[in-house]
Amino acid sequence: MLLRSLKLHIIQCGFAPVVLQVSRTCSNMPLSDTHQSPDNAVSGKQVKSERKLVVPSNSRFIYPEFLPDPKMEWRNSLREKLERLDMIQRRKHIDIPEFYVGSILAVTSSNQHAPNKATRFVGICIQRLGCGLRANITLRNVIKHVGTEIKYQLYDPTIQKIEVLRLEKRLDDELLYLRDAPNEYSTFDENMEAEYLPEGTPVPVNTTLVKLKPRPWRARWERKNMKGLADLELEERFYKRAEELATPWEKYDLMKQYRRTIPEEEQKEIFAEVCSELHEVEVMRKKLKRKKVFVKPTRSS
C-alpha cells in the first residue's frame, strides 16, 4: 500500500518533495492509527509504560523476514523501512504466528471459485524463503494420493488465516527431499486439531530420519549433506563423486559468511524498531481473544 502510494507520488511530483512526503507518512502512520480506534489507543498507552521492553534474543528465528536481503547491491534503507511498516500493518489484520520449517500449518485463503469463497490447506512447511513483503512459505501434503504443494506469500492480502497445528522443527532448514520420499512422510490429516504447546517451552525438534524412494530423484541428495535423511543406499561411485564436489573450505570463508548475514548491530536496530509494535499487536490480539470468550448475556423476552 505505502509503496504503491509512494510510486504515485513519484509520478505526480518531482523527487525532492517526495522524500519529505515519505518521512511524514513514516512518522505519522502508527500515530494516526492509534487515534482512529479506541482499542489501539489503550494498548498504545500500555506499551508506553513498558517501553523498556528487552528485545527477545530469538526474534531473528521467529521473524526472519524482518531482516532485509543481505545482498549489498539491493540494500535500500528507506525501502526496507517502508516494507517493515507495511508488514506490521498487515500483521495488525491477520495473526502470523511463530512457526518453523517442519511445522504443520493450516492456511485459509480467499478463493472465488470455492463454494464458500475460501480454501483451507493443511500441510507441512517444507521451505521458507524471501524477506520483507515477499516472504513466502511452501506447504506440502498428500491429498487423494497426490503430493500437493502450495506456495503462499505470507503477506498476501488474500490470506485470511494462518494456524499452526503442530509447532516443531526438523533437522534441516529445507525439507524439499520429502518430494522424493514415500507419501507417508508428508501425509497429514486435513481435520487435524491444533496441538497445544505451553508458553515458554522450547520448540521441540522432530528427529525422524526420512527414508527416500529409490532413484531417480529430483536432486542429488547425497551431495547436499542433509541431516534428516536415513542411509541413501547408493553405489560407491555416488559417494565418491559427492566427496570430489564437496567444499569443506567454505565454512572457513569468513567474508562469505559476513556477506550472507545481517550484522548484529543492524539486527538490534531493526528489532528494536519493530518489536514494540509487534508487542502492541500481540497485546491487542490477546485482548480480542479474551473478549471473544466472554459472551454477553442477552435479554430474551
Binding site: L67, D69, P70, C131, P263
Partner: peptide, 11 residues
C-alpha cells in the same frame, strides 16, 4: 530474493 542467514550472530 534471498533470506539473511540467522544461524549465527556476527559483529
Amino acid at each position: 530474493m534471498n533470506q539473511a542467514e540467522v544461524s549465527q550472530l556476527i559483529s
